[in-house]
Design a protein around this nucleic acid. Structure first.
Lengths: 234, 234
DNA sequence: CAGGAGCGTTATAAGTTCTAACCATGGATG
DNA sequence: CATCCATGGTTAGAACTTATAACGCTCCTG
């Protein structure tokens, strides 16, 4: 899967990797702004247009960085071990999400919206985002939605009826019959959790909490706990 | 307040206004990318560097747009009439927030993070964001926090002790003694609501819900209702 | 061991923001 | 009222950006 053949292709992949690495360093140091082909090329030691042998355009390079960011945060989330009960697991997952974002704020910013000016999110990022959130589906499959969140669950049930991708998402992470109420609840909980996570983490990363002595982790814990209650998690 | 004096200043203000308007149109049509001084100038009918007579830099122009966006969404929120009870008011406020963002997605994106590549959010945006969220403070002042959200309220209490801005924020929108438990609760609820609003609205605006048949308003209602419960709102 | 694919180079085009130098108009002032 | 200079517009140009074109060298491949 990784190495097809030939020293040519091998070298090519090495250079691509180096470009990605340098781009990431530039991103960390100078923001998205810093991902300039000239700057990257200079830092690598070759001049300008050579990069176009490896990436068709700056946007394609950004696209790769976005994908890698999704993969990375997905890995971080999936690496969280199951706790004793679903509540604890939910908290652990949320903290892992937050920790990753705080650890690599620039990369989270790359994800969090339209990263670069004219950059249009490629379609596959949506899918990547969903697989990254997979473990949440498993957690919420262990509970049942209360009346409070029933409308959301209803929409998810409708979604499963009309879109095979929904069922696929569910089955990939939890072993439940799409007909059961737990099924719709699992998806509903995940979407709600995703939204809350994104909200607090995004405000944290963009520095909106600075000066108000508010720890994002406190907010997150509180939110996830109420969410756990809304889904009757053990 | 608006017109100081002189036809000179009058004309100047007109041109500045026209620039802002054209910039907004460009933003809507071509994204942040489209806010290029050349393009704007061309569209106005003057050539290039003339704009620098009116805005010191592109960043300053962006800064103005960000401020106006904050002011606008703040106006939209503050225009929401009080409903019969706090719960209903909270829902109405949330829907107003969502409606504004959906109506002007590009402008919301301008707010939602670091809009342009190297653009550093000016300090006053934080303050503007807070005043925009003011009505929420008033709403949550009508309830008391449950144990669920107590940790958040505790942090807010600590914040009020160390930062006069916190108390000022509270007093500007609700008539409560900072010592009361309702005080910390009001701020805690507002921050929680802000985080949730931003989360769902942001995911909606960036199109993450597309294809999953999920209406952001359903999510929002659900979240705000649970939040109302967590603060024992009538 | 040819031959050419792949890679790196420079030159160049078309953008961007922003500064500099210059000039005309017209409001403010003696 | 006549002057003056602040204000606002112009073009030129510098320092960037992304991206393409045309040109060789090298070294893998058949």
């Amino acid at each position: 899967m990784t190495a097809p053949a030939g020293p040519r292709a091998r070298y090519r992949e090495q250079v691509r990797e180096e470009i990605r690495a340098v781009a990431l360093r530039q991103l960390a140091e100078s923001g998205v702004q810093g991902i300039a082909l000239n700057a990257i090329a200079r830092r690598i030691g070759m001049s300008g247009p050579a990069l176009y042998r490896y990436f068709a355009s700056r946007d394609e390079l950004l696209h790769h960085l976005v994908r890698s960011a999704y993969d990375d945060i997905g890995r971080a989330i999936n690496a969280v071990p199951r706790q004793e009960d679903a509540r604890a697991t939910l908290l652990a997952l949320g903290r892992a999400y937050l920790a990753w974002a705080v650890g690599e704020p620039h990369r989270y910013l790359l994800i969090q919206g339209p990263p670069a000016p004219g950059y249009a999110s490629p379609a596959d990022t949506v899918e990547r985002a969903r697989t990254a959130m997979g473990p949440f589906v498993a957690v919420f499959a262990e509970g049942k939605p209360t009346a409070q969140v029933q409308p959301v669950a209803d929409e998810m049930r409708a979604w499963m009826r009309t879109d095979a991708a929904a069922v696929e998402w569910l089955r990939a992470h939890a072993d439940v019959d799409p007909q059961e109420s737990r099924a719709a609840g699992a998806l509903a909980g995940t979407v709600l959790a995703w939204s809350q996570l994104h909200g607090t983490v995004s405000l944290e990363v963009t520095g909106q909490y600075t000066g108000m002595g508010q720890r994002a982790s406190t907010l997150l814990d509180s939110q996830l706990r109420t969410l756990a209650d809304a889904f009757l998690l053990p």
